[in-house]
Structures are given as C-alpha cells and as structure tokens.
C-alpha cells in the first residue's frame, strides 16, 4: 500500500505545475549562469559554481513548494478521506507520501544534474567526478528539506510551512558556520547557542559543491558520514510527521 501511495504521489508531483515551472526556471538559470561567467575573469569557475548552487536552490524550492502542498491538496480535494476510509494506518500514508515525493525529487535532481553537467561540458567548463558527488549530496540535501517541509506542514498551515521551510534552509546552512562564530560567545551563551543550533539539521554537511569546484577530494568516510546524517534526519522528521498525523483530526 505504501508503494501504491508513493507511486501515485510521485506521478502527481512530476505532473505538478510548480515542479515543471521550477525545472524550467533552472534551465533559464543555468543559461544565465553562463552570461554571468562571461562577465567574470574566471568564467568557468563562476559558471560551475552557479550551476551547482542553482541545483540546490531550485531543488529546495521544489521540495518546499511540493512538500507543503502534498497533504493539504488531498484535504482540499477531499481525496484524503477516500484513502483514510480504507484499512490503512496513517503512518503508511505519511511514509508513502514522503517516498513518492522523494522519488519525484530524485528524478528532478537527476534531470538537473544531467542538464547542468551537459551544459557545463557544452560551454567548455572542465568536468570531473567531484561535480557528480557534489550533485548527489545536493540531492540528499533536497530530500532532507522535503522531510522538513512535510514536518512543518503537519504542524502549521501550508503557507507558514513553506516560509518556515525556507527559514530552516537558511538556518541549516548558518548552523554550519556556527563553530567559527562560537568563540565570540562566552559561558552560558555559548552553550545556549550550541544547543539551539543542534536542533536544526546542519545542511553544511551536504554543501560539498563549494569544494567540488576546486576539485578538492571528499574522503569516503566523510561522504558516508554525510549520507548517514541525512538519512537520520529524514527518518527523524518523517517519524515526527507520523506522530503528529496520528493524533491530528483530519
């Protein structure tokens, strides 16, 4: 049953206007990235940076836009009641929904990575395996953000969930820079800041794209650690979402 829900969700997400629109935005963006590259004295580096950044930014926008609308659309169109009237545990519904969304996002990320690398290759920028690894870690970052969006939707309204999702993205990257800022704090303030930051997924673990441009190799242990970290947060957030929906009056 989970796979049926996942399949339906994936198809629905892939057909959604926001998904296709943001994909088109990505294509426009990578085209413009080349223009920005022409302005810069180091054109290839700049274009590669921007293409990798766009994959993350557009991917997160897709994840938040689609993730927050996922259950809300079901309630609005009253299709949720048809599903829940069946002998189906709510956790199966939530997990199915997330897996469907994740599958759609993986397809989107794969398309973006393929298009991005093809475009970089076609415009003469150097291609190397680090870019692929950076793209895969960005995809994992997007999957974490999808789980964040799903979790916020369970707790608040879709609009607020989208705003909170994007705020989490910004905070998640700010958290990565916190170790450099903590020495400016002292005593209990440092403890409070560190404790607060620990509640937010550290998205800096997936930002290998900044090093990939310079072909700095990523040690396999760090790659494995980043993947495990991402999967842990996804499991945690989806579980929280399940717990909320179990008690929620729909």
């Amino acid at each position: 049953m989970i796979l049926i829900i996942a399949g339906a969700t994936c198809r629905e997400a892939l057909r959604s206007r926001s998904f296709l629109g943001l994909l088109a935005l990505y294509c426009l963006g990578i085209g413009l990235a080349r223009v920005v590259g022409w302005i810069s004295p180091a054109s290839d580096d700049v274009t590669t940076n921007l293409v990798l950044s766009l994959q993350s930014i557009v991917g997160v926008l897709v994840a938040v836009a689609t993730g927050t609308a996922l259950v809300h659309t079901e309630i609005k169109q009253r299709t949720l009641y048809t599903v829940l009237s069946r002998p189906l545990a709510r956790w199966r519904f939530v997990v199915g929904k997330y897996l469907g969304l994740a599958a759609a996002l993986v397809v989107g990320q794969g398309v973006m990575l393929g298009l991005g690398l093809t475009w970089l290759g076609a415009t003469g920028a150097p291609l190397h395996s680090a870019l692929v690894v950076a793209g895969l870690l960005t995809a994992l970052e997007v999957l974490v953000m999808a789980a964040v969006a799903l979790c916020w939707t369970a707790l608040t309204s879709p609009l607020l969930a989208a705003a909170l999702g994007l705020a989490t993205y910004a905070l998640g990257h700010a958290v990565a820079t916190l170790p450099g800022m903590l020495p400016y704090l002292q005593g209990w303030r440092m403890t409070v800041a560190a404790a607060g930051a620990s509640l937010i997924p550290n998205l800096g673990r997936f930002a290998y794209r900044n090093d990939a441009v310079h072909q700095v190799p990523l040690p396999p242990a760090e790659l494995a650690s980043a993947i495990a970290y991402g999967l842990l947060w996804i499991a945690l957030l989806v579980t929280i979402t399940v717990a909320v929906y179990r008690k929620k009056q729909l």
Binding site: A42, N49, L50, S53, E141, H173, R209
Partner: peptide, 21 residues
C-alpha cells in the same frame, strides 16, 4: 568573513563570485 559565510545560505563560493563581479 565569518558573518558573510553564515549569510551565504550554504553557497559561499557562488555568493563570493557574484559579489566579486
């Protein structure tokens, strides 16, 4: 530099390139 890194939302390389241009 430390605050700029925090504000770059995980895209410090891209942000620095755009700022440079």
């Amino acid at each position: 530099p430390v605050v700029a890194r925090a504000l770059s939302c995980g895209h410090p390389s891209s942000a620095s390139r755009l700022r440079w241009i």
